[in-house]
Amino acid sequence: MPPTSKRERVSRAEQKARTRTAIVEACRELITSGRMVTMPEVAGRAGVSEATAYRHFSEIVELITTALVDLWPTPAEALAPVAGSTDPLARLEFATDFLLRRVTAYQGAVRAVIAATVTSPPRVRDRPGFRFGLIDQALDPVVAADTPAAAQRLTQLKQDLAAVVSADALFSLTDLCGLDTEAAIASLQRTVRTIARTALSEPGNGHPGEAIADSITSNSGR
């Protein structure tokens, strides 16, 4: 066979790139529809075979993670409406609402990722970690961590919140407890507020003086 020309190699590379783009775009369409995302469904929408889709993305988690890049704002963009607030509880409440409403809108993709990683525990760390960025953005600008002890307490608070500001927690309330979406989000917001208020009200919480305690007290009736 004659050697492949440079032009042919470029053409193949371009076709491969176009196919990959088509697969990602098809996945984004499915994600925003809220429907369950599967590789056969994505391949069909992209006009390629399932085998071709798998050649570009080895499994569904990789594909969904790639497709979400342009669908999810940065933490700073997401929390822009509360950027001027110095109240960590209000900021966390907003972050919780933002995450869980986006999870609800994209729940087909979220459930697909959870299902794929539950059956393969080593892949859990491949799940998109949007909650962590939102929690960081809610707390870091307003909660001081200027001593080792304060930094450790802040880290512990973030870990505690990660169990609540999550799709898993939302689906537990909607699927197992039978709550509707609004009630489930409100429940998790209350839990987030309770966890954060308790942690930030403790002595030596990393804030200068009693400013944070005063902030928490003044907002506790919300």
Results as ranks from 00 to 15, higher is better:
I23V: 12
S85V: 10
T38R: 14
V110M: 05
A43Q: 08
T96K: 05
F98A: 13
F98N: 13
P122M: 01
Q107R: 11
E93V: 11
E59H: 14
A112R: 01
R131Y: 10
R55F: 06
T32R: 10
E14Q: 14
R45V: 08
R55M: 06
A17S: 13
A115P: 09
A80L: 14
F98P: 01
V69W: 09
R28D: 06
W72K: 07
T52I: 10
L99C: 04
S49K: 02
Q15T: 14
R123I: 07
A116E: 13
F57H: 00
T19P: 02
T19H: 00
P73Y: 07
D97C: 14
L63I: 15
A80Q: 10
A90I: 02
R123Y: 10
P121D: 06
I31A: 08
P73N: 11
T104M: 14
T86D: 15
A53M: 03
I135N: 04
E14T: 06
R102M: 07
P88I: 07
R111A: 09
A115E: 15
I64M: 12
H56D: 14
D126K: 10
P73C: 10
Q15N: 12
P122R: 05
P81K: 05
I23E: 12
V113H: 00
I60E: 12
G34A: 07
K16Y: 05
R127V: 10
P73R: 13
L100M: 12
I23W: 01
R45M: 09
K16W: 06
F94G: 04
V82P: 06
M39Q: 09
A53L: 10
R111K: 07
P122K: 09
S58D: 03
S33E: 01
S33H: 04
L89A: 07
L79F: 11
G84D: 15
V61K: 00
G34R: 03
L71C: 09
E29N: 09
Q15C: 10
T38L: 14
T86Q: 13
E59N: 14
R45S: 09
A22Y: 01
E41L: 08
G84Y: 04
T19G: 02
M36C: 06
D70E: 15
V113Q: 00
T19V: 14
R123C: 03
R123L: 13
S58K: 15
G108N: 08
D126L: 15
L100G: 12
D97Q: 02
T96E: 06
I135P: 06
V110F: 06
A83G: 12
G44Q: 11
L99G: 03
A67P: 00
S33V: 13
A90T: 12
F94P: 01
R111D: 10
E77V: 13
A105L: 05
T19K: 00
V37K: 03
V113A: 00
A17Q: 15
F94M: 04
F57W: 02
E62W: 06
L134P: 08
I23M: 03
K16Q: 14
C27K: 00
T74D: 14
I135A: 10
A95K: 00
E62I: 01
R28N: 02
V37P: 03
D126I: 15
T119H: 08
D70A: 13
R20C: 02
V42P: 05
T32P: 04
R35F: 08
S85R: 12
P128H: 04
Y106V: 02
D87Q: 09
P121S: 07
L99H: 05
G129R: 13
V61Q: 02
A95H: 00
L134G: 05
T119L: 13
Y106G: 05
D126S: 15
H56F: 10
A95G: 08
R18L: 14
